[in-house]
Computed example of a mutant assay.
Amino acid sequence: MKSKSALVLEDLRTQLRPASVAQVGGFGPSADPITSWFLQGVSLPGEGLPVWKGQPMFPLLQIRTDELPVVPEQLKDVALLVLYHNLESHPFDQPHGEGWLIREYATLEGLELLPAINTPYRAFPVRWVSVNDDAPGWEDAWDVIDLSDVNEDEDASNCFFDDFNRYSGTKVGGYPTEIQHGAGIQDFVFQVGSEEKVNWMWSDNGIGYFHKSPEGIWTFSCQFY
């Protein structure tokens, strides 16, 4: 490996991010519904399930932020959020509220379990594992560091892909795990992977990415194989 490219990779190692990675199943659920879950959520009294095209949406993922070992800046004033998805189709690149929706709660007070809804998916509680070495993918990494020297060095390129950890499942914080192209690191908050135990898949084993702007606007995108 050339010295210049080796220095670039060393610099990249200083740019690795911490993240909270979801552990799905393998442990018993809590009696408290106000915890992190796939396919189970809570709401304020009378709020109920959100509706899209006349049909209720379901809670795909609930995140309780004080359970996260790593909390992104965008969630510092959020006690709990619930991501909803419709039962009809994946709303690829649609704005917030069009087939998907995120509800945020500043406090856990008064939240109660949502009514059950029939879906093809399986509910599982979620625990969060702390990692401190999440690396960006190739395209997103260019927004972090100039990879020109690495691009011209085969050994360094192999090292970029083989020697850095990228967590492709459901996670909060870190870098988005790109599949086809850059997913965008600016304003990235969390991603939802294709979770086998939940029977959830974004098209062909894809990943859904969720970003939140400084103005509080959520956006969704997805990549798959």
Rank of each mutant, 00 (worst) to 15 (best):
K197M: 11
V144R: 06
D187R: 12
L108G: 13
I217C: 11
D162C: 05
F164W: 00
G182N: 03
E139I: 08
N132R: 08
A183T: 02
P176G: 05
A183F: 04
A183S: 10
G193N: 06
T107E: 14
F164P: 02
N158T: 07
L111A: 06
H181G: 14
C159V: 14
L147R: 08
T107I: 08
T107Q: 13
G169F: 06
R127F: 05
A123S: 13
H211V: 04
W202R: 01
Y105M: 03
D162K: 05
R122S: 12
F190Q: 01
I185D: 12
G110E: 10
I217K: 13
E154R: 11
G182K: 01
P115G: 05
E152K: 10
F220D: 00
E196F: 11
G169C: 06
W202M: 06
P115F: 06
T119R: 10
N132H: 15
Y121W: 14
V131P: 12
I217R: 12
R122Y: 07
K212Q: 10
E215D: 12
G137Y: 04
A135R: 14
D143E: 09
W138P: 02
E104P: 01
T219D: 01
D143R: 10
W200F: 13
I185A: 13
Y209S: 07
G174P: 08
Y175Q: 04
Y167I: 13
W202N: 06
F210I: 03
H181M: 12
V126Y: 05
Y175E: 01
E215N: 09
D162T: 06
L111R: 09
L108I: 14
H211D: 04
F164S: 00
N132F: 08
D133P: 13
K197E: 15
G208M: 03
E152C: 09
I179F: 06
G174N: 08
S148Y: 15
V172Y: 00
V198T: 15
S148N: 08
G174L: 08
A141P: 01
V150Y: 02
D93F: 13
A123L: 06
G137P: 04
N165M: 15
G137V: 11
W218P: 00
V126M: 13
A106P: 01
K171L: 09
D163H: 07
E139P: 01
D140R: 07
F188C: 07
I117A: 00
P120C: 02
G173Y: 09
P115T: 06
A156P: 04
E154A: 15
E154L: 11
